[in-house]
């Protein structure tokens, strides 16, 4: 493989990784606060794909993007309210089952509404514009994705570290009960968390599907799980960790596909997960916690 091809693949990988990173943040935030693997997150991402398809049929692209992001965010908050809030005091297994149930519902609902046949993802002309850099060529979205990801992450970090809401989020993730006793409005914090997560999943969805060109009701499952792995890889609850994990998995996956091991690219992600959980369960940047007897 020539250097150019390798670079070309790396570029694609970085772009894919950027989208993964945005989705992984959603997992990491929710896990940090509720200790819940939000199995429905991948399906929120998939639904955002459909929202965009429909929004673009009647609106110009800037408005369509806005609509998609708003609707996705609202859906994230709505799902939390309907399916997770009633189970706040239930055992962890119940809430995880509820998340799986929501994922199941979203998949079936979208199969019903949009059929299982892949829908073409509309092209937003300026995103698909091809740039030529020496021998490398890339569409605008490929370059935009990592940049946009970094910008959003920086904004998010500022939000989490400098604002009052961010402080509340950190407090809740450190100690749910104590934060509650200190008068933090838990439900608001959780809603904000889901809103941020879903918003980023919406952005990730636009970037991801623009490159992939079609959406099916099941296109959220695997990317979703991979992004969770990315979050675990970087240390669950840790935002920069999720970003690093997202990029890492995106790049490795692209390279594996390029080398002809496409069937194993998914398997690799899970292999990575299992190895990580065994060797360093707290992830690359996670803190160690000791369980008290």
């Amino acid at each position: 493989m020539s250097m150019t091809t390798i670079l070309q693949h790396c570029l694609t990988g970085i772009s894919l990784g950027g989208a993964y990173a945005l989705i992984a943040i959603g997992y990491t935030l929710v896990y940090g606060i509720l200790r819940l693997i939000n199995f429905a997150h991948g399906d929120i991402f998939m639904m955002a794909g459909y929202f965009m398809i429909f929004a673009l049929t009647s609106f110009p692209w800037p408005i369509a993007i806005l609509i998609t992001l708003v609707v996705t965010t609202l859906m994230g908050i709505g799902i939390e309210r309907a399916a997770y809030k009633p189970l706040r005091s239930a055992p962890r297994m119940s809430i995880m089952i509820s998340a799986i149930g929501v994922s199941y519902l979203l998949q079936n609902l979208s199969t019903y509404l949009f059929t299982a046949i892949p829908r073409g993802y509309p092209e937003i002309p300026f995103l698909k514009k091809i740039f030529q850099m020496g021998e490398l060529s890339a569409s605008f979205v490929t370059i935009l994705t990592p940049i946009l990801t970094i910008i959003l992450v920086v904004i998010l970090m500022i939000l989490v570290n400098k604002t009052k809401t961010g402080m509340a989020m950190r407090a809740v993730s450190k100690d749910f009960e104590t934060a509650k006793l200190m008068g933090i409005n838990i439900n608001r914090v959780i809603s904000v968390t889901f809103a941020i997560g879903s918003f980023l999943a919406g952005v990730g969805s636009i970037l991801y599907f623009t490159d992939r060109m079609s959406v099916t009701p099941f296109s959220g499952t695997l990317p979703g799980l991979k992004c969770f792995v990315a979050a675990v890889f970087g240390g669950i609850g840790n935002i920069p960790g999720a970003v690093v994990g997202g990029f890492f998995i995106g790049i490795v996956e692209t390279l594996l596909v390029a080398l002809g091991y496409s069937t194993f690219s998914d398997a690799f992600t899970f292999f990575l997960l299992i190895v990580m959980l065994l060797v360093r369960p707290t992830g690359l940047f996670g803190e160690k916690t000791v369980e008290k007897v």
């Binding site: 200790r35 995880m96 398997a267 292999f271 369960p281």
Partner: peptide, 18 residues
């Protein structure tokens, strides 16, 4: 708990890939 869930889910996907 949930780490076991996701790890076993991953294993099942690995088997499927094989």
């Amino acid at each position: 708990s949930d780490y076991l869930a996701i790890a076993t889910l991953g294993l099942s996907e690995i088997v499927r890939a094989i």
